[in-house]
């Protein structure tokens, strides 16, 4: 809490209030309120279709939410502070987005660029760094995810786990205030999940603010500071992991959700 001049002490970095999002008649999210504290890891879990990815994608306005608000350090995400709502002009939305890193389930690396170019591109195009400096920083970021030997490889020559680590390097090289992870290990072969989770753990240990949609209950139980459980578009609970993964979670929906994991001895 020392470097951020704009941060208000005691206030969450991201505040979500009464968030609502619908697609036509389908209510994907309703009445979701959530605080993400600085330097904390918040995991979002829940059955598929419960709205956890949608909630995450609202946080950087990849999905435009209709009701409620999401604020990053007090600034309303995606909308102007007016009534009725008008979307932010492109330039201002881009300024917000560069403070929010994103890691996707399908990696979404740019296939025509090497690992290093994938990381450096944003530094050059958005942060306007010189090519040499962008290259240095890209090397540094790739070292952080243990890929210093693969900087010249194209994504097609990398394993899924390596690709996802490049994607993480791409996100953190921009020095975002928070990184969003959308099921970062769901597309990986089981033996590659560990290397990605380890990188994420290291990142969390460094104090990076992270919001992680995941099915990795072990990660949620051991790394998260808070775990949010979503069901049918509602946030049922957002509590320390012990209250969810403890002997007897309060809500029957959480109990039945975790039961499927317990049956497979995952937790």
């Amino acid at each position: 809490m020392t470097t951020d001049s704009a941060a208000v002490p005691g206030q969450a970095l991201i505040t979500v209030r009464d968030l609502g999002k619908s697609y036509g008649d389908f209510q994907a999210l309703q009445g979701v309120s959530l605080d993400v504290q600085k330097s904390e890891v918040t995991c979002l879990i829940g059955p598929s279709g419960s709205g956890k990815s949608t909630l995450l994608r609202c946080m950087n306005f990849l999905e435009a939410y209709q009701e409620g608000e999401i604020r990053l350090d007090g600034a309303l995400i995606g909308w102007q502070e007016s009534s009725p709502r008008k979307p932010l002009p492109g330039r201002r939305l881009r300024e917000q987005r560069r403070q929010i890193g994103m890691v996707f389930q399908q990696f979404n690396l740019w296939p025509h660029m090497t690992a290093e170019e994938n990381v450096a591109e944003g530094l050059i195009q958005v942060r306007r760094l010189s090519k040499a400096e962008a290259r240095d920083r890209a090397q540094l970021a790739l070292r952080k995810v243990n890929l210093q030997d693969k900087t010249g490889n194209y994504p097609s020559a990398l394993s899924g786990g390596q690709q996802q680590r490049v994607a993480i390097a791409r996100a953190i090289a921009m020095e975002p205030r928070v990184v969003l992870f959308d099921e970062p290990t769901s597309a990986l072969d089981p033996e590659l999940v560990g290397e990605v989770l380890n990188v994420m753990k290291a990142l969390a240990a460094e104090g990076m603010t992270m919001v992680v949609v995941t099915h990795e209950m072990g990660f949620a139980a051991h790394v998260a500071h808070r775990v949010g459980f979503l069901d049918h578009g509602r946030l049922v609970a957002c509590v320390p992991p012990a209250e969810i993964f403890g002997a007897d979670p309060a809500d029957p929906r959480i109990r039945s959700f975790l039961q499927t994991y317990r049956e497979r001895n995952v937790v």
């Binding site: 990849l62 881009r94 987005r97 996707f104 399908q106 979404n108 740019w110 944003g122 791409r170």
Partner: peptide, 11 residues
């Protein structure tokens, strides 16, 4: 996803 990844970086 290629467009989304680029938007998320702020392009």
């Amino acid at each position: 996803g290629q467009f989304e990844a680029a938007r998320c970086v702020g392009f």
